[in-house]
Design a protein around this nucleic acid. Structure first.
Lengths: 336, 336
DNA sequence: ACAAATAACGTAAACGTTTGCGTAAAACAA
DNA sequence: TTGTTTTACGCAAACGTTTACGTTATTTGT
């Protein structure tokens, strides 16, 4: 596994290894003739530049760290895929780490990535705890959040407009004739979910509806959480005609619980999600939801991060992308 | 962003930087007293070891490369998550790259990872092309495949027993009374899918059934592919009572097409998948399938790779894990 | 034709670690 | 005591690049 280095090539080519370096790195300080000759020798000898050594002297690794709560959630795995592909096209590799929805682990892998000398980190934060320890980390490396959780941080972030998204959802259900809408959400320690809830509440007020809110004690928006909480809900008396979930995965869990409780969707109750994961489009799920423009979020996050890396003094910019309604078959009109 | 180095710490502590190195790296050649003193100073100064520099001299990066066709497939994203978490617990970070089901890209990112000086790579190959260019790469870095595609390669691999898995599936459908089973699979240039098909064929022969095979021209086992191919199938006359798919995602696409064609599952036709992705457990999907022990595959792949890294001369070992039947509601008994 | 500018390449330092070797002091054995 | 081993540390080379600077040969300007 011993690899061939610049020196080996230089010896064969009969030049100094600085010249070889210039040949492979595309420096102008070299004649086209020798460049071609050296490049040919490189091919023959199977030379691959050692990016570790390069990182050493250039003081940048062209590696981006990614901290993501989970890859089991399709929203996040699709986002991760988009991030990786786009970053690679821009010359950066991604070092992805699962935080497993764990706050301490989140911080731990962050400093691990710093030790790895990543040029920047993209973080999808678990929630919003007192983050004094996080800001100590973000000070050490350019960071962008994909989330609205971090509004009180000086770092850039990109996100869908959660507040507006839930307004759109609420207004849509209202337009279908629903007047008793249950908001079904994850724990509120996250700004993201706070904004979604506020969007719902504001629309309720504007439209003259009484809000009904049911929230999980978990911050995790998983199918299991939705299933458990909805099972409890369905077992007790309830009069809401629609359930608005703060995440598609929650809605899918709700649907499962509804199914087992003999409640039909959308016949007995309408159901909405938020995220628009690909599975929501399945005819068996067919979930009306609010779309997050994941691809644009991914490219923008990378762009913003790279800008920040190139110019650390530049002002921070935030990007709030517009959500959109994806109308499917999980909601029915209850007009008289 | 200028970080504090060994020298900075050494200057403050009044020792040589070799001593500081020994303190932080846990060398025995140092007294407990000075170690504690230096470590305290490290904390105070916020010193983080530069792993790039360490990699430089130790000639290993503690980074593993991962090449995966797609993260949109839950089977692969769950596998990726398991790989990352387990690798990190063993002291390695993962650099994951999407090959996007593209053969050339697969090779391209492989050499990119080699340039990154990864200590090893885990690859979920797209298929099985004439891989003379791949073996040139695997010679340069320890590799393990998660797939049965690479049996003629000298590298280790870990996989579920695809052949046996499809036998189990076929026997199960037979036991329910099915005698006309359609095998619905991805393109055959992949050894994995060849083995699955062979498992089906062998069981057909053993049980005295005539095999019916329908194969996609795509190697990608996506919902879209299953949907398209099944749409075509349902639009023509057909008499099979069960459809056995080579992947859950295909089966989900088939289910969608069946739904739109007005064909009920399992009333009109039974449906089976292969993989046991988490979504198959949803009551709306409820797909009977063959389980792949992903977690064990992940840990074994990492273990095998690390063994290979520590002892490059060791003999290669392959690990074929047993599949198991997950019985759900997508198949019905057609006994008389 | 001669000075000045430029092009092409070599020299060597630097990036932040680890580690083999050397050495002085401390500990131990006799 | 003296000799030997051990402990704890410093010195300096090495890992494979990049790049500022120096130098020579060539080109350009007048």
């Amino acid at each position: 596994m011993a690899s061939v280095t610049l020196k080996d090539v230089a010896k064969v080519a009969g030049v100094s290894y600085a010249t070889v370096s210039r040949a492979v790195s595309g420096s102008p300080e070299i004649s086209e003739e020798t460049r071609r000759r050296i490049l040919k020798i490189c091919k023959e000898m199977g030379y691959t530049p050692n990016s570790i050594a390069r990182s050493m002297v250039k003081r940048c690794t062209n590696i981006l760290g990614l901290i993501v709560p989970s890859l089991n959630n399709p929203f996040m795995s699709e986002l991760t895929a988009d991030l990786e592909i786009y970053a690679r096209n821009r010359g950066y590799n991604l070092m992805a780490c699962n935080s497993s929805y764990d706050h301490d682990l989140e911080l731990e892998v962050f400093s691990l990535l710093i030790g790895r000398q990543v040029d920047g980190v993209i973080m999808i934060p678990v929630g919003h705890e007192p983050y004094e320890s996080l800001s100590a980390l973000t000070k050490q490396v350019p960071t962008v959040f994909i989330s609205e959780n971090m509004q009180d941080y000086p770092e850039n972030y990109v996100s869908v407009d959660n507040y507006r998204g839930m307004q759109i959802a609420t207004e849509y259900l209202f337009s279908l004739g629903h007047r008793d809408i249950l908001y079904f959400g994850a724990r509120s320690d996250s700004k993201t979910h706070e904004l979604r809830l506020d969007g719902y509440l504001s629309s309720c007020e504007k439209l003259g509806m009484t809000p009904h809110v049911l929230r999980s004690t978990y911050s995790r928006s998983s199918r299991e959480v939705g299933y458990a909480l909805a099972g409890e809900y369905f077992s007790r008396p309830h009069q809401e005609t629609a359930i608005l979930c703060s995440a598609d995965m929650l809605a899918i869990g709700v649907k499962q619980a509804a199914y087992e409780a003999g409640i039909r969707i959308p016949k007995d109750v309408s159901l909405m999600g938020f995220d628009n994961i690909s599975f929501s489009a399945l005819p068996e799920i067919d979930l009306t939801t609010i779309n997050q423009p994941t691809q644009q979020m991914a490219t923008s996050a990378v762009d913003m991060l790279l800008d920040h890396i190139r110019d650390p003094e530049a002002e921070r910019t935030n990007l709030i992308l517009p959500p959109s309604l994806i109308e499917r078959k999980s909601c029915r009109s209850v007009r008289a």
